[in-house]
Design a protein around this nucleic acid. Structure first.
Lengths: 302, 302
DNA sequence: ATTTGCTTTTCGTATGCTCAAAATGCACAT
DNA sequence: ATGTGCATTTTGAGCATACGAAAAGCAAAT
């Protein structure tokens, strides 16, 4: 009933590694978010560079995508691969399997957020609970730690971060984000990254156009990319990192709430995001900051 | 020549664990910073609670301190232990051995900061280099990761955080700290923690009085406790955590610079810190912020 | 009521080995 | 120049067990 159950799927091969899956998803998202049309060449070395991995997992990932018809061999005399289909309206989840490790990660997150799992846990207690090996437990806990969601206790055990569910945590989080994001906008080295900005806009537009009915997870990603993108353009990596960590925390929080945001609320947020982007692009930072501040205050209510 | 060489010291027993050492140092610092006089009772459960560990390592640590004459049995009919000597002018380093793991941690930090170690490393490459087992490597890297100083790469290997040595990094760091620390001062739930404030003051006074000629490491601790303490009083844990992480980064940076801050500069900083604390205590937040801002700007120059 | 001192239980580290996968190098193609 | 396709090297994950240290429990003491 543990991890093993979710492995061996309907795939021809079930020895796909998490990294390969990650790359596969990355490629699909890249094609979609950058709007690459069918026929666009896919260079293995280029992709490897983008993802910061060697060519090996990229090659495998592209092979898997070929099996699924997402990419195909280049025509006639050429070698190599190209985009095969228009991904605009496709769902990543339908193409790439989710890594069992990812599933577990979310499951633990949910269990923790719902109070099902205590704040202090020992590795040994997780092994039977999720029916996984010690190695997997370590890996998962390290991942939580990397996101700032857990940390080792001095002696034995791990402690999950105080979650945002308490009134205090949520309020603190929004206060912190307002501080950091507004400061990021005002950073003397703030520079618009046109490509990134367009990519973020595209994602939002797709939702507003109705082309995408975002699941909770998808909306989360879009939302995060807006806030993180903005922080990144500050040119100060500490602003970016701080917001990234806040997003990780929020993800944990949202893992708990089963009811999702209303479609209306999501559309509203999209509009607000786009308004901020417009103001930023127009160079009107005062207005952008006001809008952002307002947006974050609003969001705090939900 | 590796870790093993630095273990088996002149101690009667050399199977002291890192946790026991940590607790030992913690107790010494606690006695000193809180100003506990000889005769003060040391309760094992109380200390265990403070450090977030069980009574076992505390008991061992106190035993070691007894051997060293820092603590002693309570008089006559009582059981238990008490403070035995006045620690005011004592150096922690003279009392507690430094954990070999700690030494290695610093050594790696120094090697990295000085560019001796590349930004991207593999576990396998560190094993022969420092003559340690894979387990130790993992442990060390995990510790770096926990402090935000390194992270796993997607495929193989680890990557150290961009260090602060570049002009950019340093500037970004100060910009970020000014933003966060000033916001912390302005937080609506800022509350003075008198005990903590006094403790911080005491440390600074000891330096100004000339009672303590701080080593680089000691000054670092005092400095960090000022900034972190202030951020902690904001009542918003995100401000505190952000500053804590900044301090970790700075520690890595300072590990590189062989020349230390001049005694004059340290005294100057102490004065500035105390001035901020005075303003805070007087409730004059405008002034406190101005002083803090000025202090951070100055510090950026060094 | 809390602490000590001891005992019992639980936890995590260490070790050594195997093997799959990621990284890397090179010849050839475009 | 850069990319592909294949071969080789390197890396780290997985696993099973033994052991020492940390945690947790309890009776006696103050």
């Amino acid at each position: 009933m543990g991890i093993m159950a979710s492995v061996g799927q309907d795939d021809s091969r079930d020895d796909i590694t998490p990294l390969q899956i990650e790359v596969m998803r990355g490629v699909v998202e890249l094609i979609r978010d950058e709007g690459w049309a069918p026929g666009t060449r896919l260079s293995v070395p280029d992709l490897a560079r983008r993802f910061g991995v060697s060519r090996s997992p990229v090659t495998v990932a592209l092979g898997l995508l070929t099996e699924r018809g997402i990419v195909a061999a280049m025509p006639a005399p050429h070698r190599g691969l190209q985009v095969a289909v228009d991904l605009r309206d496709m769902d990543v989840a339908d193409i790439a399997p989710s890594s069992p490790l990812d599933d577990l990660y979310r499951r633990i997150m949910r269990d923790r957020a719902s109070g099902d799992l205590p704040q202090d846990v020992s590795e040994a207690e997780l092994i039977p609970r999720y029916d996984i090996s010690r190695g997997v437990v370590r890996k998962l806990l390290m991942r939580f730690a990397a996101e700032g969601l857990a940390q080792r206790q001095p002696g034995h055990g791990w402690r999950f971060a105080d979650s945002l569910d308490s009134m205090d945590g949520l309020r603190d989080s929004y206060e912190f984000r307002i501080t950091v994001e507004c400061a990021a906008l005002r950073s003397p080295r703030f520079r618009i990254n046109t490509g990134q900005l367009d990519s973020i806009r595209r994602m939002h537009r797709r939702i507003l156009d109705g082309a995408l009915q975002p699941t909770g997870e998808e909306w989360f990603r879009v939302n995060a990319s807006f806030h993180e993108g903005l922080a990144a353009m500050s040119g100060n990596r500490f602003y970016r990192d701080a917001i990234h960590q806040q997003n990780a925390l929020r993800r944990m929080q949202e893992a708990a709430s089963f009811e999702e945001l209303s479609a209306d609320r999501i559309r509203e947020s999209c509009e607000e995001h786009l308004a901020v982007l417009d103001a930023v692009e127009a160079g009107n930072m005062d207005w952008a900051e006001a809008l952002l501040r307002q947006h974050l205050k609003q969001a705090a209510e939900y």
